[in-house]
Amino acid sequence: MRIRTILLSIAAFAMAFAAHAMDFKPAVVYDMGGKFDKSFNEGISNGVAKFAEETGVEVMEFEVTAEPQREQAMRRMAERGATIVLGVGFAQADAMNKVSAEFPDVKFAIIDVYWLDQPNLRQYSFKEHEGSYLVGIAAAMASQTGKVGFVGGMDIPLIRKFACGYVQGVMATNPDAEIFQNMTGSTPAAWNDPAKGAELTQSQIDRGADVVYHAAGGTGTGVIRAAADAGKLAIGVDSNQNHLAPGSVLTSMLKRVDVAAYNTFKDAMSGDFETGIKVLGLAEGGVDWALDDNNAPLINDAMKAAIDDAKAKIISGDIVVHNYESDNNCPS
């Protein structure tokens, strides 16, 4: 009798699990940049693709093109039976807040947001300032002129957060350094304007900069190309961009949104989905700097030691990198 009960419960469990796996319908709503922006949305898309490949589960996808579509897309996904809806980017925060309250039985997750409060919502936030601090050290040490540059995408607080962390890293290494900062523009087109990115980089190089860090999405390809053409160094962002111009990309500041997307679906599928805010910094592996065969010749031992030292100190709390978003201000 006992064995039979066990068998039955195993069978029931297996069936429940199978049913669960079959009914599992993940959905992702990309934002205006689009799935193939070579940067932020594409990072998410890579994580989603990895999940889909490993599990064979089909993921519903949508890319918004206008403001009202954010809410519409999330609601449509939930109505179509999505088990989990992943939103991409802070611009979707209000829509996410509204729709997640309307569908309490559906799970939701959103990237780059930390200020919402819903019982069925997981929020991811990244400490971009910590990663930017590390590449700032690399920039200061690699620069021979003592002048380095930063090219941002659209001028919004999130991008100033990258710039501010970078400035702190540069200044901590070389207090006499000069830093040029430019934003590409004030419309979303600034995320995808490689020509303007190249122009700004060239003007910074003309003023003496020999390392330029970008946080500009698709615009950054222009930054990297311009630096490579001039024989100077660029620093990539979000995904590992070292391979875009081997020998000319000093390193890349990694923001692992792909891991966040992958983990979101994976956790939701296994039924092990915790809600709340997940803040991913150096300690959690959410941000990092990239070292691979493409940039190994550019990073000498002293540089690597300095970066690793700072990384350990940030993780232990000995170095606190100021977060621009905490007070919309950057200490000079």
């Binding site: 802070f90 611009a91 925060a93 209000d94 780059d112 947001v113 930390y114 200020w115 659209m154 001028d155 919004i156 607080p157 999130l158 523009g185 004030s186 419309t187 978003e325």
Partner: peptide, 19 residues
Amino acid sequence: ASVMVGLLSGPMMREGQGS
């Protein structure tokens, strides 16, 4: 566009969030 971004990410921006 520039005026609006300046205002929306500056004096008119809602506190406590990043958008």
